[in-house]
Amino acid sequence: MKILVVDDDLTALSLLEAALNLYGFKHITLASSAREAFYAIKHAEQPFDCFLLDYRMPEVDGVDLCARLRAFPEYKATPIIFVTAASDRISVNTAYAVGAVDYVSKPIDPQEIGVRVSIAEKLVLEERERKKQDVPRRHSFEAEERFPNFTIEDPVPIFGLNRVISSVALENYLESQGDGCKNDVVSILAINEFDEIYRKASPAFAYAVLREVAKVIADSLERTAPLISYNGYGEFICISKKTSTMTSGGHTRQINSRLARLNMRFEDTTPCKPTVLIGKPAKHSLWTSSTPSKLIEKALEASEGQNSPFRSAANSMKNATNCSSPVLNI
């Protein structure tokens, strides 16, 4: 696995290299600034498979670098791990919002680095395998269209949108927060009658709808610093700050009014008017402590009880209850 490590501190760079070597990772490139990182990317014969970034760096910091990396089509799904001393909630949230898949706090613990990068390697290998299997299916469709071939229940990743993250990143975020997620609220947002849209449209169009809805949700909830992950069945898991002043009814109206303004149309030009319903949010209670995975479970459970479309809940519940350590559940 080819890894690019970026840190302005030369001691930290050497330590990370030693830790990675210890765990058998030998193809490592070191960069002490974003400028050096871009030089290495430009001149690499093969693309990098994983990035380790420091958060605080002069000129271009880790967050900016991460966002720029995500703008490269070949790096939209590459694991980016922050290794940093900045461990406050805002820093962690911001890192995930721009595309981090994991976040490791300094001081550098070689074993932790080895474990986290091994998990990232597993993701890379799975992605390679998925791409291999996807090739014949893609060829049967229009090859030039860039969208993942997915079924309605697939929690297909949505790339390139600020604050919209993969399910693995979401789990890692919650895990990294531990007790710090006391200020978080988890909600499930469902596109009403998404199966109708999925049935009527091509997968490319259905995926475009998911992207548009995800973007509208992220924009509408911006004040609550949300992290949003697609969960299949047209449903999103959203983690946001508890201190929001707007009610979920207010958010629903705002999201749906923005969606209505998009004026989307199916390929046959008939109008496509997706609307979103927000499930009952799950919060930490004063009397019982909830682990991060329990909080997602609570939100899914609360949504499952409602009449409307929350259908990814049953599937996810099975996964969530089987998983005591979400960070390893990939």
């Binding site: 501190d9 001691t11 930290a12 330590l15 605080r56 940093t84 001393a85 300094k106 001081p107 550098i108 613990d109 070689p110």
Partner: peptide, 10 residues
Amino acid sequence: HKIAGVAATM
């Protein structure tokens, strides 16, 4: 910041 990131490992 520089010291905090690596001192413990050292």
